[in-house]
């Protein structure tokens, strides 16, 4: 398995303010996603057009089945639209093949999921190190990056702990460390506080906010929770596959 390059720490210090004329980080044009459920065709996304600027923390809201997760998956390159364009940092992810998409995701996207999805047999540090196994970094370089990522989320002292030895909030912060360890420009979070109590949710959202503010990451977060959405710099709503506000 050959390495595929990799991000470098310290984290980038991109412009935190969005210039009105600057090229958006994510540029979506007439994006449509249709599902077939037996004989019935379901429109998950209906000609969505959207720009997300670099350094934005976008909260994507909407009821269940509104298409918000589908939109997030397409932006993150894990799903394909039926029609339309989705350019991320100028790359149309809808045109990449499976292998190119895998590379692209490894370099450009950090994932945070509702259920944390840490590998139970790996320690916090090993979970964070996983995406770096695909890079050309040597063991010492990987260790340094892992330590930095865990420090960023305040869990350096938990590096050797297994997921079951940590609280839900800590697990999610490990997942955040895993998402940012390759230093991706874009972080996507699908209901990151859905399984957390309010205190842990505050911690996680605070960590995401800090990533945007201090490291200039572009964050797209799907959430049901208006309080969580308020942590974003912009909120948009999806309703039956269409942008409503």
């Amino acid at each position: 398995m050959s390495g595929r390059g990799g991000g470098q720490y310290p984290m980038r210090d991109d412009n935190l303010t969005v210039s009105p004329g600057a090229e958006p980080m994510v540029k979506i044009r007439a994006l449509t996603k249709l599902y077939s459920q037996g004989d019935i065709q379901v429109t998950a996304l209906d000609r969505i057009t959207l720009d997300i600027a670099a350094g934005e923390f976008l909260s994507l809201m909407g009821p269940s089945g509104s298409g918000k997760s589908t939109l997030l998956h397409i932006i993150a390159g894990v799903d394909r639209p039926t029609r339309g364009e989705c350019l991320v940092q100028g790359v149309d992810v809808t045109k990449l093949d499976e292998s190119q998409l895998a590379d692209w995701r490894n370099h450009n996207v950090g994932f945070i999921f509702q259920s944390f999805n840490l590998i139970p047999v790996l320690t916090a540090a090993e979970n964070v190190e996983l995406p770096l196994l695909l890079t050309r970094l040597n063991r010492a370089q990987r260790r340094r990056q892992v330590e930095t990522a865990l420090e960023v989320v305040g869990l350096a002292d938990r590096a050797r702990h297994l997921p079951r030895q940590m609280s839900g909030g800590q697990e999610q912060r490990v997942a955040i460390a895993r998402a940012l360890v390759t230093d991706p420009a874009l972080i996507v979070a699908d209901e990151p506080t859905g399984n957390l109590d309010s205190h842990s949710a505050q911690e996680v959202l605070g960590a995401l906010q800090a990533l945007r503010r201090d490291a200039g990451k572009t964050i797209i977060m799907v959430t049901h929770d208006p309080k969580a959405a308020a942590f974003g710099t912009r909120q948009i709503h999806l309703e039956k596959g269409e942008l409503s506000a």
């Binding site: 595929r4 499976e98 895998a102 999921f113 995406p131």
Partner: peptide, 19 residues
Amino acid sequence: FRELAILKALGFRRRELFA
């Protein structure tokens, strides 16, 4: 299965998962 899906999302390719 879910963990393998996560690995795919993180950038692991089919051939790596097969390996």
